[in-house]
Nucleic acid binder design. Structure first.
Length: 278
DNA sequence: CGATTTTGACCAGCGC
DNA sequence: GCGCTGGTCAAAATCG
């Protein structure tokens, strides 16, 4: 039994925007997937820099086009390559993994014929890390691995071990930069994190994330969780999320927060709906 | 011994 | 219709 409360649908792990002082929010044209992208020269964690790329951010909150559902396929908005940019440089969000996702017709393959799979909102995170599978406070079970076209690195498929939780995530490395791990989360956790079961330390997030557009603003504080080491994680606060960190040796300035990393990135709409009813 | 990972096979969508 | 590709299943293997 695990905690079953609300938890951020996304990894509450450490995160770091990759990017200097600018960030870009865009929508994958092919799928309507939202993701954040930022650039930073160096990871605050050294080898483990977490770059947030919520691949599909909030949607039904109005931040972005409505989440696609069976009745409302992403096609409704996928046509626009909209992107929101903080101000200065806008990097065209690279969307490595998501581009191949087909939006609307989600059917998939639950070997049950006739049943269409409902595609959940997704968030992608680009992380600079040597390890593929990054701790995010949840326990995952790998259920598949596939070679990806145009990429020398295989893509791994994970599912939350909580039987009641349908969250999945894909992990793959960027073919352009092998040091970057692209993690795509799909769905929302219906339970709390379990901490870092594998030698970790603390629980990452047991609070509701609160993500809103303005929180993405470079001038607004963003909360991050980040591991100080591979197996540990701590939380800190940063008031200038987009402020360039010069080198990994410098103590990261992350915002202390009572929320998970994604808590600030994931829009309310993306989070468990029931929590909004509270 | 239970949980997790590995891996080949299968299925469905899409483009040609 | 066919082939390609992404995503998932499930049995076997491995791990703790």
């Amino acid at each position: 039994m695990e905690d079953k409360d609300r938890a951020p649908s996304v990894p509450a792990t450490a995160g770091e925007f990759v990017g200097n002082s600018s960030w870009t929010l865009g929508v994958d044209d092919s799928d309507g997937t939202h993701f954040f992208s930022a650039d930073r020269e160096k990871s605050i964690f050294g080898d483990i820099g977490w770059n947030l790329i919520p691949d599909r951010v909030g949607t039904d909150e109005g931040l972005f086009p409505p989440v696609q559902t069976e009745t409302a396929p992403a096609s409704s908005y996928r046509s626009n390559n909209q992107s929101i940019s903080s101000s200065s440089s806008e990097d065209p969000p690279e969307k490595p993994t998501i581009s191949d996702e087909k939006p609307s017709e989600i059917p998939s393959k639950s070997k049950k014929k006739g049943q269409k799979r409902i595609r959940q909102p997704r968030f992608a995170f680009m992380t600079k890390s040597e390890v593929d599978h990054l701790e995010d406070g949840y326990r995952w079970r790998k259920y598949g691995q596939k070679a990806v076209k145009n990429s020398p690195f295989p893509r791994s498929y994970y599912r939350c071990t909580n039987s009641k939780c349908t969250v999945k995530k894909r992990v793959e490395r960027s073919c352009e930069d092998p040091t970057i791990v692209i993690t795509t989360y799909e769905g929302q956790h219906c339970h709390h994190t379990v901490g870092f079961p594998r030698g970790g330390g603390g629980i990452i997030s047991t609070h509701q994330p609160s993500f809103t557009t303005h929180q993405l603003s470079p001038s607004m504080p963003i909360h991050f969780y980040y591991p100080t080491e591979l197996n540990t994680s701590t939380t800190t606060t940063i008031s200038q999320p987009c402020q360039p960190l010069h080198d990994a040796s410098s103590p990261p300035l992350l915002p202390p927060t009572d929320e998970g990393l994604l808590g600030d990135i994931v829009p309310l709409g993306m989070r468990n709906r029931d929590e909004r009813n509270i």
